[in-house]
């Protein structure tokens, strides 16, 4: 069975059940849009799906194997969380260069320059990222989507701090990725527009 499958996930935080016996699957060429109010457990669910945290019950399978034992999952995954994972003392180029090395992706410096250029960061490549605006930092973080060829994208609030053009640009990237047979799971407080293509919605409710 290809793709990503979650079965019977339960997550309990501070004696509050965020979700219980939650099952869903994500097949190649699908965009799963996770919706829910603040505190409903969207980030917790995404972190469980990446393997950063473990569920109280249930299991995530990638291509049939549990992600804890899968040795291909890390290679096939890009996760971008709330935090941009950029060191503020390093430049955009350095941050992405070292990130690519950590993830064992072979990219030339010229490729990184090119990706930053198409993401609207010309001239900002080699200044420390702490001097960039929040939206520009987000664009640097999102540039990873162009650098690593991974079928599974898990993005937590990727539109935060992006301007209108940035949102449209990212939605077009989503639809291109899905058309190529990629899998994408994302959350956002603003509804996805038509640019992002077809998507299935998973609703999480706030529970007491």
């Amino acid at each position: 069975m290809s793709g990503l499958r979650a079965s019977g996930l339960t997550c309990i935080k501070r004696d509050r059940v965020l979700f219980e016996a939650l099952s869903f699957s994500l097949k190649p060429g699908e965009l799963l849009y996770l919706r829910g109010p603040n505190g409903a457990g969207k980030t917790s669910l995404l972190r469980i799906v990446t393997g950063l945290s473990s569920a109280d019950e249930g299991e995530i399978y990638y291509q049939g194997t549990p992600i804890r034992t899968s040795n291909t999952y890390a290679k096939s995954l890009i996760y971008l969380g709330h935090k941009t994972a950029l060191n503020s003392a390093l430049s955009a180029i350095e941050n992405l260069h070292y990130w690519a090395a950590q993830h064992q992706v072979a990219v030339a410096t010229s490729d990184i320059y090119h990706v930053l250029e198409i993401n609207g960061l010309v001239g900002l490549e080699d200044i420390p990222v702490r001097f960039l605006s929040a939206g520009q930092q987000r664009r640097v973080a999102l540039s990873r989507l162009w650098l690593k060829k991974a079928p599974v994208w898990i993005l937590d609030e990727p539109f935060t701090a992006l301007d209108i053009d940035g949102v449209a640009w990212l939605e077009r990237k989503f639809s291109a990725h899905v058309k190529e047979g990629g899998m994408l799971m994302t959350t956002s407080h603003q509804p996805l527009s038509a640019l992002a293509g077809d998507h299935t919605t998973l609703d999480l409710e706030y529970r007491f």
């Binding site: 950063l52 290679k75 935090k83 941009t84 994972a85 950029l86 950590q102």
Partner: peptide, 17 residues
């Protein structure tokens, strides 16, 4: 500290190394 605060630690954890 910095790696934890800016999220780099999450990326290490998911790097497969």
């Amino acid at each position: 500290r910095d790696d934890f605060n800016d999220g780099s630690l999450e990326q290490y954890t998911l790097s497969g190394v």
